[in-house]
């Protein structure tokens, strides 16, 4: 069954988006990403140390893959830092897509809602398609839509926690209140059934990383998530 859709101005086949971090090796990463069927892969930026040979290993593998890049602003705690990182990412990856992260809490990596809205506003005015990494808060979603976000990425639970969807009714509410917005659940999904549930709640897609990358068999888990997303969409 084909279930093509569009995100922003791009036509896609898969509703599963996948992160490129934490895999045991670049080879496993590549195989897992291919097995997932994902069209969109998240990437990041890191500081170079002077004189050090660039660790291009993962990037060389990634760069060969026929996927769309979704750069993030991971590790940014302030608006200015996130905006500068966004501009560096746009040049580096040649895309106006941006997974905007403005972190408010170091322990849970919970987004800072105030900084997120401010940064999203600046970046949208500057031509970015912002994918804001957010909590599942209704009013935050409204503020982000108000500044022009066409895509929202509420978490299911704290990033890397694998707790699954902690507040399904909040995602349901976001779906009901923002029928025109592309809703992508990002962070906290642990099992393929969590991804199926997110799709059953009416989300347009899911983005995950550690549940696949840290699994004992990432390739198999990537396939399982791919099937779960399709099943949840059909169900």
């Amino acid at each position: 069954m084909t279930d093509s859709w569009s995100l922003g101005d791009t036509h896609l086949q898969s509703r599963l988006m996948i992160g490129s971090a934490l895999y045991p090796s670049p080879q496993v990463m590549q195989t897992a990403i291919e097995a997932s069927g994902a069209d969109i892969v998240t990437v990041s930026l890191r500081r170079q140390t002077a004189g050090q040979n660039m660790d291009t290993n993962h990037w060389q593998w990634l760069n060969q893959m026929p996927v769309h890049w979704l750069p993030n602003t991971a590790g940014c705690y302030g608006v200015r830092e996130a905006v500068t990182t966004a501009h560096m990412a746009r040049e580096m990856f040649d895309t106006h897509w941006l997974k905007l992260e403005v972190i408010g809490d170091e322990q849970t990596l919970q987004p800072d809602p105030f900084g997120l809205v401010e940064a999203a506003d600046l970046l949208i005015k500057d031509g970015f398609e912002v994918f804001p990494y957010m909590t599942d808060d209704l009013v935050l979603a409204q503020r982000l839509v108000d500044v022009g976000c066409r895509i929202l990425m509420p978490w299911a639970s704290p990033i890397g926690s694998g707790q699954g969807i902690r507040q399904p009714q909040n995602l349901q509410l976001l779906r009901e209140r923002f029928p025109e917005v592309q809703l992508i659940v990002d962070a906290g999904l642990g099992r393929p059934s969590d991804a199926a549930t997110a799709m059953e709640l009416g989300c347009d897609g899911v983005l995950l990383n550690s549940a696949i990358a840290l699994s004992p068999d990432p390739t198999r888990m990537a396939q399982a998530f791919g099937h779960a997303v399709a099943a949840g969409r059909m169900g």
């Binding site: 971090a21 930026l45 890191r46 660039m54 660790d55 990634l62 991971a74 500068t84 580096m92 990856f93």
Partner: peptide, 10 residues
């Protein structure tokens, strides 16, 4: 000065 390169990310 900040110099950054691509890396894997989630």
């Amino acid at each position: 000065i900040e110099v950054v390169a691509p890396m894997q990310g989630g």
